[in-house]
Design a protein around this nucleic acid. Structure first.
Lengths: 334, 334
DNA sequence: CTGAAAGCGCTAACAA
DNA sequence: TTGTTAGCGCTTTCAG
């Protein structure tokens, strides 16, 4: 079934069919009805590839998300989709696995979907100019920025929290409650991810508070996964450790840590205080409820859309927006 | 940058470029090198739409997943992807929102990607023949089947657990521990989803055990979400309820229930026993660890692939496979 | 081993 | 309001 068949069956030309299918004006009701009838009867579905190919423009904004299982992103994504639509554009979503290359995915999309702009939701912080040369539309990084890359700040936009500062604040909360032996649970530590940035905030805070970095208090695991965190902390606890608090660089990892601590007979927050960063839904259902610095998910999403749209419409230049976190008190802090 | 430009720049014809790009044999090394060089220099990326359009066949197997946030699916998906590749095919993944029409998505995909077969991961149980007439390749439903639909059993395959029986077993565990007042936490209850089937298993069990269905023990909420479950149970607990156990139709909902129970001062499992179905990772990190009937995720995925591939290759007919669940003891059961 | 040319299914001028 | 036709960028015969 192609548009030709439909045209023949409806007794009109292909262009008329195309017009009907795309809700163009200037089509007689009779023609429209005839076409619709044939389309319905054969439940004809136009071929998207051909459609995209033939089209010269679009109102598409691409969104590439790294890791489809991250609950943190799903939330932001909803907002992004909503805002893109409200701005009169169409969202084209591309999910990629954690080992896929998002630049490649974006470049492919850009050509296929004739994108006007791009939003990267989550991603690496170390792209180089060279790598990004295959992307020719304006893009904004959501929840991260090219912290360790060599990208020109004027060549892209970003909206995120200040990860370093958030980590600092987390440690500060612990310190203010009298903790001096604060362990850190991270992934990496130099995997070029946000883990690295938050770790930097941790060390900066220790330094400011005159605590000094203790290697024995660094729990480094292989991923952001809950299981790896659990295994890592469990293993770390095998040795006798001198600590009273843990700063986990993500809620998810903190959740793994909680189980390990519980199994080791440590009571939270009595024996060990715990704080993290992110504020995902699940951590609110932990027992005890996780204390964490929440990222402003809604704002992250809506601001990202605002940024691309403004640039697409020539209303603004590339910008870098930092949003504040808010403390969810929770129960893992005294 | 199109294939034409590359051809011109490399001093060869477009067909040669195409051959190089697709790893066809019968291309001289010199030609190959020249093309590769130009491609690399301009980091040219062929347009997928055009590619798909021009192609006459494919080795694609489509997978459409409903709801990208369901942790339960991500796991199965990994296995599916792995097996498809091992079978020598290519997986084309399509994620759809909970309000999207998966049949439409599948039909689109089938034409665009020239699919050989389809796997639906999660979905409704009530498609009709009419609705499915737009799909012309063999498909298998993974984790569900056309329980309330009018589909011919020979027209598709499925692999799932026996949801009714799993619910029955869950209630049985509770009953065997002496519980007589068993509440059920479900979504719907007649939303045509798996919730409905599991609820049927619950009532069947009550019946068999001579317990009788008590409307006051049915906690019905609006979604499978953790928050809705929490809110629902919390509200339900406002009235004085006479119960000693809860069967939650999903892990996720059970997690919401746990918090509501805790806040109501009910101790688990001392005051209230709790059991669910699914066996997702997160529920293993609850405190106490959730007792649940685990779905065999790996087998569900690999069997689904086996089924489509066997049919695609003409080695087998449509089948319906039921896999067993296993009890994760956990700590919410005595 | 290589190139020319005919599509793939659709959209979008341009005429009528 | 409609139809004709020339592409969109690529793959794939079919000759050479």
């Amino acid at each position: 079934m192609t548009i030709k068949d439909i045209a023949r069956l409806a007794g009109v030309s292909v262009s008329t069919v195309s017009r009907v299918l795309n809700n163009h004006p200037d089509v007689s009701d009779t023609a429209k009805e005839k076409v619709m009838a044939v389309v319905a009867e054969h439940n004809y579905i136009p071929n998207t590839s051909a459609r995209e190919l033939g089209k010269s423009t679009s109102d598409n904004i691409g969104v590439v998300v790294r890791g489809m299982s991250n609950p943190f992103y799903t939330n932001i994504l909803t907002v992004i989709g909503d805002r893109i639509e409200k701005a009169g554009y169409t969202m084209v979503l591309q999910q990629i696995g954690s080992s896929d290359d998002e630049i490649m995915a974006a470049a492919l999309m850009e050509r296929e979907k004739r994108l006007l702009g791009l939003i990267f939701l989550g991603g690496k912080l170390d792209y180089t100019k060279k790598q990004l040369s295959s992307i020719n539309v304006p893009f904004v990084c959501c929840t991260f920025w090219n912290q360790y890359g060599t990208l020109d700040k004027n060549s892209y936009s970003s909206v995120s929290i200040d990860d370093n500062q958030a980590a600092y604040k987390a440690v500060e909360h612990l310190y203010n409650q009298g903790h001096k032996k604060i362990a850190v649970l991270l992934s990496g530590p130099d995997d070029g991810s946000v883990s690295q940035v938050r770790f930097a905030g941790y060390t900066r805070a220790l330094n400011d508070f005159g605590l000094g970095l203790d290697k024995n208090l660094i729990i480094s695991v292989n991923s952001f996964g809950i299981k790896d965190a659990y295994d890592g902390v469990k293993k770390w606890l095998k040795k006798d450790r001198d600590f009273t608090a843990i700063f986990a660089i993500s809620d998810n990892m903190a959740m793994g840590a909680m189980k390990a601590l519980r199994e080791a007979g440590k009571s939270i927050p009595k024996d060990v205080a715990l704080i993290a960063i992110d504020g995902i839904e699940a951590s609110e259902y932990m027992n005890p409820v996780l204390s964490t610095l929440c990222q402003p998910m809604d704002e992250l999403g809506s601001e990202a859309v605002k940024l691309v749209v403004d640039i697409i419409e020539g209303r603004d230049e590339h910008k870098h927006v930092i949003l504040p976190t808010t403390l969810r008190k929770g129960e893992t802090l005294k």
